[in-house]
Design a protein around this nucleic acid. Structure first.
Lengths: 219, 219
DNA sequence: CCGGATCCTCGGTGATACTG
DNA sequence: CAGTATCACCGAGGATCCGG
């Protein structure tokens, strides 16, 4: 008898890895929670709520319980400060390739922002990581600070390997300020030079590093 | 009939490629339909129903409409025979990497079959394709016929490139008959030799080709 | 404040019957 | 065969409440 019996109610009735994956993380909001835990590390209940506008508290609690039972998420109580955090288990972290791949697929269909759509740190972290082009980054070492609206994050690339984290990075090689136009830039719909000329993107640093940025991250 | 049927109403409120992906294919059954269209090519409504045990007809109809509206699925009327088939558009086919990756993730958690769980051709095709090891297949050319229960399919590998199709292949290099134990074999939980010895797997052909099979496909 | 639990409403899902 | 129609039910969404 599977360990998650009794937790998952919606099943697909197929003995199939793909079907099992959907049973475990296919419910509404589940993969969004995984994405945020993946992008920003351990998070408190309240932080997850903030990053997922519109999710009801009972649904978040339910998803967290289900994913704990499935061994995807771990609930941990920190001693100092005395708070509860949720984090991905190794099994949960193994969803990374799937999340990145789905993110790439969706990014191509993104189009212009709808009304009331917001941008969160974790979604941006995921976006940068999923659009990162390892081939173009061979041997590259550089640090970018990126601000989209009032969200700031930074990416460090060290010899072709990338890490993306929330927050500013004052000593970045290039600091980029932009808005939803970040999509056009990553999609190559506007050249970096034009983006700056049109005021879609503002930078602090060498503009050639913006060209590199557009080569390193591509939808 | 409400005219808005087919429009996505459950949104996530984030300007994010990953969120958009879930809005388009995150609803229940949607990716299962994609999987079957991906594995078996254009399909009739009835064929989709057969491959997805338990899906209500109205839900299948709704998903197909939604995915047509999203440009993921195309409805086409064949002239001879005069039937309607559904197929993936290029956008839909681009979900392949995501489906394979999720399938790999889920396969690791599959465990033993639950009661009443069935095995379908399309799930097996997906399983073989997602567990295929290109590195192990470098330069390999071989044809396998695989029967799991009463489902038969075949895989052709030509110079390391694989195609998997439903149905028998009488002139295959090796013909394999097995059951749910296929998972243990692909997971390496039982050695090919032992699988045959224990009667979990029966073969027609050279047993060394079964060793190769276990090397070519791995969970 | 935080981490939920509870209650209520609404709409989607699932099951089935039905029609062109 | 290819869906549509109907309806019971349950999970999502939204608000509020409560113990720590």
């Amino acid at each position: 008898m599977p360990y998650y019996q009794g937790v998952v109610r919606r099943v697909y009735g197929q003995y199939c890895g793909f079907a099992r994956a959907l049973e475990l993380v296919g419910e509404r909001w589940a993969l969004m929670v995984v994405r945020d835990l993946m992008a920003g590390g351990p998070k408190r209940f309240r932080d997850l709520l903030r990053g997922l506008p519109g999710i009801p508290t009972n649904i978040l609690a339910a998803r967290l319980k289900e994913m704990q039972a499935a061994g995807i998420v771990r609930r941990r109580r920190l001693s100092r400060p005395n708070v509860v955090v949720y984090e991905l288990t190794e099994t949960g972290a193994a969803l990374e390739a799937s999340v990145m791949e789905l993110g790439r697929w969706g990014a191509k269909l993104l189009g212009a922002p709808r009304r009331n759509e917001i941008i969160t740190v974790d979604s941006l972290i995921t976006a940068l990581r999923s659009t990162f082009q390892p081939k173009a980054a061979k041997g590259v070492t550089i640090a970018y600070e990126l601000s989209v609206g009032d969200i700031t994050l930074h990416a460090r690339i060290v010899r072709g390997r990338i890490t993306v984290k929330p927050g500013p990075l004052p000593d970045a090689d290039l600091s980029i300020q932009t808005g939803p136009a970040i999509r056009e830039l990553l999609a190559g719909e506007v050249a970096p030079r034009d983006a700056v000329a049109k005021g879609l993107v503002a930078i602090r640093g060498n503009r050639k590093l913006l060209d590199l940025f557009a080569a390193l991250f591509k939808i």
